[in-house]
């Protein structure tokens, strides 16, 4: 009998999330160490799109990567990378707006959460969703928030698979939330009946909710000049809105 990674993941999903191996223990923690290896993902102010990472990270080895979906659902599932391309793909151009005040725009392609929900069938009590990543990061959302049409589980950016810097193989894009909510390197999706805190609420001054507030944005594609924003997803006068095609 052939027992490859995918078979393992599928068998694994039937056991539920409780038996998930703790991947985070294997991740070197460089948060308080400036001498981390150069090949690690780190904070870089790259022209056009800054890179931010809570913990310097080597990136995902795709043969060791899998997505496990469980918690309060009827049908826990697990996916390999190639399985995710079985979902209907949607694309959109939207901004990632950082709490540091800058924003950057890209074309994102991925699947909608509603398609995944249909497969795993959450219990009525599952009002919240926790997401965990391969780099020890974690986020939490209201289920309703992830079901919004502009929220994507993203596999491609600007026409190419996500790069290591941007969360390969799978990241979230929720354009009405600050960048720190847009978790990269997703490995686990768990439906729950109570809200959990997120990484930055536990480690810094940022809210669990993370909805973009009215204020000022400094878009990188506008030479960081200050522009007013009204709250929620950021659209500047030179951005196309979804209903403008």
């Amino acid at each position: 009998m052939k027992f490859d990674r995918r078979s393992f993941l599928k068998a694994f999903s039937t056991l539920g999330l409780a038996l998930l191996p703790g991947k985070s223990h294997a991740i070197p923690d460089y948060r308080n160490d400036k001498n981390f290896p150069k090949e690690y993902v780190q904070n870089r102010d790259r022209p056009g799109f800054f890179i931010r990472s809570a913990n310097p990270f080597l990136g995902v080895e795709i043969d060791n990567w899998g997505l496990v979906v469980g918690g309060k659902v009827e049908k826990p599932l697990a996916f390999g990378y190639e399985d995710l391309f079985g979902f209907k793909m949607h694309s959109q151009t939207s901004r990632l707006k950082c709490v540091e005040c800058w924003s950057a725009k890209a074309k994102w392609e991925g699947f909608q959460f509603a398609d995944l929900v249909e497969r795993v069938k959450p219990h009525p009590s599952a009002k919240y969703v926790n997401l965990k990543s391969a780099d020890s990061y974690y986020e939490s959302f209201l289920l309703e928030e992830l079901l919004r049409p502009r929220v994507l589980f993203v596999l491609q950016m600007n026409g190419s698979p996500l790069s290591k810097d941007h969360g390969y193989p799978l990241r979230l894009i929720a354009p009405f939330k600050y960048g720190y909510k847009n978790i990269k390197y997703i490995t686990q999706i768990e439906f729950t009946d109570s809200r959990s805190r997120n990484y930055w609420a536990n480690h810094g001054p940022y809210s669990v909710d993370g909805t973009i507030q009215p204020g000022i944005d400094h878009p990188l594609d506008y030479r960081k000049k200050p522009l007013p924003i009204n709250g929620g997803e950021v659209f500047h006068p030179f951005d196309k809105r979804p209903d403008e095609g």
């Binding site: 001054p205 507030q213 204020g215």
Partner: peptide
């Protein structure tokens, strides 16, 4: 309220926002 990175500000009575 309007917000910057780590500050929160009141808005004046005449301030118009849109949605």
């Amino acid at each position: 309220l309007t917000q910057t990175h780590t500050s929160v500000k009141f808005t004046p009575v005449y301030f118009r926002n849109w949605m």
